[in-house]
């Protein structure tokens, strides 16, 4: 794990915890590869908050990861599970 992508994992966790009702049930698992995947797990009742209406919140997080990826010269992806 590079320091940069480790930081991005922290960012994903920070944002997710601020969005949900049960921050203690937020976890982010980083899967390294050509694309670095951040597997975000939240409480079942919180999945809607992470996705947002018409998926807008998840899309916002993905555009942020995209920008962070451009800056870090890496490719980041977000997976959401309950």
């Amino acid at each position: 794990m590079t320091e940069q992508s480790g930081d991005v994992r922290t960012l994903v966790e920070q944002i997710a915890k601020a969005l949900v009702d049960a921050p203690d049930q937020v976890s982010v698992n980083q899967i390294d590869g050509e694309t670095i995947v951040f597997a975000l797990r939240v409480a079942p009742d919180d999945v809607g908050k992470i996705l947002g209406r018409q998926g807008r919140v998840a899309r916002a997080m993905r555009s942020l990861l995209n920008a962070a990826g451009i800056r870090a010269h890496k490719r980041f992806a977000l997976e959401i599970t309950e």
């Binding site: 807008r56 919140v57 916002a60 920008a67």
Partner: peptide, 20 residues
């Protein structure tokens, strides 16, 4: 980076703040 595609990331950050 914030302003690409009609300010997609700028609006995205705004939305994240609103939801938080």
């Amino acid at each position: 980076l914030l302003l690409e595609r009609g300010g997609e990331l700028l609006r995205g950050l705004e939305l994240l703040a609103i939801e938080m």
